[in-house]
Nucleic acid binder design. Structure first.
Lengths: 334, 334
DNA sequence: GGTACGCATGCAAGCGCTTGCAGGGCTTTT
DNA sequence: AAAAGCCCTGCAAGCGCTTGCATGCGTACC
């Protein structure tokens, strides 16, 4: 129970105490293999005795590596990206990196400020959710040497590196699936985001190609909230004939619609089938369980960090776009 | 469409171009009021021309302020804290601060490393979820001069500052509420966390005080997942007589139990009432809507940042514990 | 007209690390 | 026994900012 030290110990204090130079203590932290075991032991003792904690601001300034990775997502309150963030955070902390979390807002309105914030802190890398569409921002990032990873999408011309999957393909697969099951009157509830719209386009294209009449589409505001399902339900209930399946932009929405349907005495899937997206935990646990598209968000996070590691070790990344794919999981609801 | 600059521009480049010293440019950023308007205009032009972005690693080293706030939470995948994080992030970015996100794990296993990470980066403040119980860690933090804010709880002896509410009081209120509604056979599904246990204790104490027989308690593993409700349901269904109300550690759990009950043909609330915790969006949107305890997570975040601001402006904080309270919201499910 | 003062700016000494280069002591090679 | 190599360590020059102190200038005051 010692008292607070009058001053925060620095590298020099440790060095003095261990009888070595600051350079050696620095190496002890950054390249332990090259310091002699006996010296290392003395340094360790000195660190314990002084309660030294390295100053990574100083270290980062000198080495030009901040060990900071900026992760920019629209939101986290009800987000499908949280698995990705968790996986990334866990992986990064293994390398002594830390996540700077930025919330861009559902319309990415705060993206520019956050990019500035990340650049200011000399983040070693920036991991973005989705594909930046703003040309000026793309150009700005390209001019920098930071690693930029775009996730959850498949840009044709990535700023730097992309880890994701094709939302277009998701839409197409769902359309084929529903066609195969014999559904004829789908309705789509599409969130106002770039990715959701790609899935919609994929669906509509494929649905047309399989010889069907155009599907009904309604828009749902972002961010996705459970309550929006009531809006969807209201619009759905007005249709005549009723759709025989509703394809929702997210599992949350799908769950909500199902609950509304059941409350209205409509049987799922007999009278109305439901398809979600994301394969969140609720999808498998609902009664009936929800047919959805599984995306391995954690894997996206891990792959992103893996790329970072490879680049950090000097490797030149040739494969600029990594496709982690997706799986349509047929359950009870459709 | 210029090419990447050969070298990253620094303060000096801006100063040269604007015909001032680096000190003045620095002041332009940190204390704009004291630089003359005409000079400011020249500096602005120079910044635009060079594409300068300040290096906050250098700035932080020199000024001893990192503009980094560490936010340590157990997880974010299915977390009740996300509103708090969002609110904090938004507020902090207004002051040019940035959030370093740390995930401690549900058992707080990674807490020590994360505290180190935060100290290493000379975080201006650390905001923790819940109350740190480890004495060594408490002591370690007390010795530092960083602002430490514990949230979502009401420690008797805060490390520094706390913003939260009394979980004990929540438990008591719920017990009184159920007593008032005439329920007699409650069952508690309690998550394995310190806060959930406090609510349990409060409930049990009050329930006993109102003259009832002890309530049935079952434990639920952390992190809370929707699927756990099935486990709860299974245990619940074995009881004879069945409980007339189940008090769940979270809305997610409550929702799941309700769905299981409905799937089993049990009517909510007639045959089984359900109480949740947290007032997440789903609670109000479920059919029937869920009776729960509302906690203003966003407010916790805002209050925490407000304290930070006050301290930053030199104020001495006297009120070490800020109680944001809670509200029991009676809806259809109980 | 001289003194006092305030405003805007410059000077320069750090902030606490990292790392290229050099060198001393050992062991191995010839 | 000398030469060559290898390990380990130290020296010292930065990294790009901030800020206390000093200074020059214009205005206000007596």
């Amino acid at each position: 129970m010692t008292n607070p030290p009058a001053t925060i110990p620095k590298l020099e204090d440790v060095a003095l105490r261990a009888g070595v130079s600051t350079a050696t203590v620095s190496r002890f932290y950054n390249n332990p293999a090259i310091v002699a075991p006996a010296t290392a032991a003395r340094i360790r003792a000195a660190i314990d005795a002084t309660g030294y904690v390295p100053n990574l601001l100083a270290g980062g300034l000198a080495s030009n590596r901040s060990r900071l990775v900026a992760v920019l997502v629209p939101e986290i309150a009800q987000s499908i990206f949280n698995d990705t963030i968790e996986a990334m955070t866990a992986e990064l902390s293994l390398d002594g990196h830390v996540v700077m979390l930025g919330l861009t807002g559902t319309g990415n309105a705060r993206m520019p400020q956050l990019i500035d914030a990340a650049l200011s802190r000399r983040a070693d890398a920036m991991i973005l959710t989705g594909i930046i569409t703003d040309a000026a921002t793309r150009e700005r990032l390209r001019q920098r040497t930071v690693t930029v990873i775009e996730t959850w999408g498949m840009p044709e011309d990535p700023i730097d590196i992309a880890v994701g999957f094709s939302h277009l393909a998701v839409g197409r697969d769902v359309a084929r699936f529903l066609h195969g099951r014999g559904y004829t009157r789908p309705m789509l509830a599409v969130a106002e985001g770039a990715r959701a719209r790609q899935r919609r386009d994929g669906f509509l294209e494929e649905w047309r190609n399989t010889g069907h009449k155009p599907a009904v589409v309604i828009d749902v505001p972002l961010p996705t909230r459970f309550g929006h399902s009531r809006l969807v339900w209201r619009q759905l209930a007005q249709l005549d004939p009723l759709p025989d399946v509703i394809v929702c932009g997210s599992d949350v929405l799908a769950q909500g619609v199902m609950i509304e349907a059941q409350a209205a005495g409509i049987r799922v899937p007999d009278q109305l089938a439901v398809v979600g997206f994301g394969n969140m935990a609720i999808a498998g646990d609902m009664r009936p369980s929800i047919t959805t598209v599984d995306v391995d968000g954690a894997r996206i996070g891990r792959e992103a960090v893996a790329v970072l590691r490879r680049r950090a070790s000097g490797e030149r990344i040739v494969q600029k776009v990594i496709d982690v794919g997706f799986r349509l999981i047929a359950r009870e609801s459709a």
